[in-house]
Design a protein around this nucleic acid. Structure first.
Lengths: 220, 220
DNA sequence: TAAAAATTACCTGATTTCAGGTATTCAATT
DNA sequence: AATTGAATACCTGAAATCAGGTAATTTTTA
């Protein structure tokens, strides 16, 4: 009984990456590249979308981000194996993607053989990561143990200004509050985050994606 | 009199991109791809380095950042035409690269024909940008006035530690330097970035993508 | 080899942050 | 009505940062 070829598709807004992957797959008989797409709409309207075994999905993707796309696809095609590809390996992003049902995450800096190997393994149902990503995931981060503290409205407001580099004096003027009040809030922030100075505070907020605009507009 | 072929080289730590560009150039007779390199050392030790007409240079680059590499190369090989390639189009980075002597900036999202066209134009001595970049450059921004300062090795090292939230004392212990020396470096950093405190410094570094691991990992 | 740039280091004094405490007012919840 | 949590504000003293200066040594570049 012969092995069926693995049907691959790519969604990436970098034509060069698609070109590179095409060449790669054309040199490996065990893969069948169904198509490479620059836009998510092109993939969605692809008539053979249900035949895709493995989808390589770019994470930093034009306007839609890959994480949302992964979520959508997994809902409609639960059997589709999705591998994130990206040039950055931000911990929080990798974890988020896995939560959305992806089977792994490959860096674009990975070697060709690594791609071939990982895709095969993923097709078998395994969770795969390219080397660098694996190393990164193995490091248990402080932020994994520390839970993100719950902040009050004022504290979030002050944190946002702090991150902009405003001093206590400036913040107090901007919010029409006493200098001493801001000092208290700052101290409470340092305590809540369990850090020893403002730089560490920002660093922590940064690691946990609290610096992104998204967090400040909605979730607070 | 026949036109000589354009000699191209690529420096990019993404094998897939090199693969894609190779395929692209092999389909266009007017180009001669001398080599694709993953590491800057490989390029520096390339024996035909002085024959390169056009170098495609990745900007967010593993060990050294592309801007520094561009600066180095232009100094040694002033005639070499360097085009930045990247998946992000951060305004300040593009401008910085141009200041270092690059002849243009292409997004990895650009179409194949755009690549071909831009490389040809650049070889003629023109300044070229892929579409999106051009649109972005046309918008005049406040942040243009501030350029990203050129940092020394030590300064980058200290900035990296600062960003991690380390205090002057901690940094001095980690680098086996005097507390007072670190103070001097900190002051110089604030001056170079034209900011008034460390939080603003980090904020500025963040906005300009200097926080990315790429900049800091091995480059010192 | 001379000049320029980088690295190291010190001094002083002003300003800001950090850490500990307390305390009043207001709003929401029980 | 009593309690809790949030927001406000003050005090003190220690610690760290910031801003100005100078200067010797080493490395890199011209």
């Amino acid at each position: 009984m012969e092995n069926k070829k693995l049907s691959i598709a790519i969604l990436d807004d970098h034509p060069l990456i698609i070109e590179g992957l095409s060449t790669l797959f054309s040199n490996h008989e065990e893969f069948d590249l169904l198509g490479g797409f620059n836009k998510s709409e092109d993939l969605y309207s692809f008539e053979e979308i249900d035949k895709i075994d493995v989808l390589l999905l770019d994470i930093f993707f034009g306007d839609n981000n890959g994480i949302d796309i992964c979520f959508e696809l997994k809902k409609k095609y639960p059997k589709m194996i999705i591998l994130g590809i990206s040039s950055q390996s931000e911990r929080s992003i990798v974890l988020q993607l896995i939560k959305q049902g992806a089977s792994g995450y490959l860096l674009k800096t990975a070697k060709n053989e690594e791609y071939i190997h990982c895709i095969k393994e993923a097709a078998k149902g395994k969770m795969v990561f390219s080397k660098e990503v694996q190393v990164m995931l193995d490091k248990i981060q402080l932020s994994d143990l520390k839970s993100i503290p719950r902040l009050t409205k004022r504290e979030k407001e002050i944190l946002a200004l702090l991150i902009k580099g405003k001093s206590t004096q400036e913040i107090s003027e901007e919010l029409f509050l006493s200098f001493l009040t801001i000092q208290t809030h700052r101290r409470n922030l340092l305590q809540k985050f369990d850090v020893k100075n403002s730089l560490e505070l920002i660093n922590f907020a940064n690691e946990n994606g609290l610096l992104n605009d998204a967090h400040f507009s909605n979730s607070f």
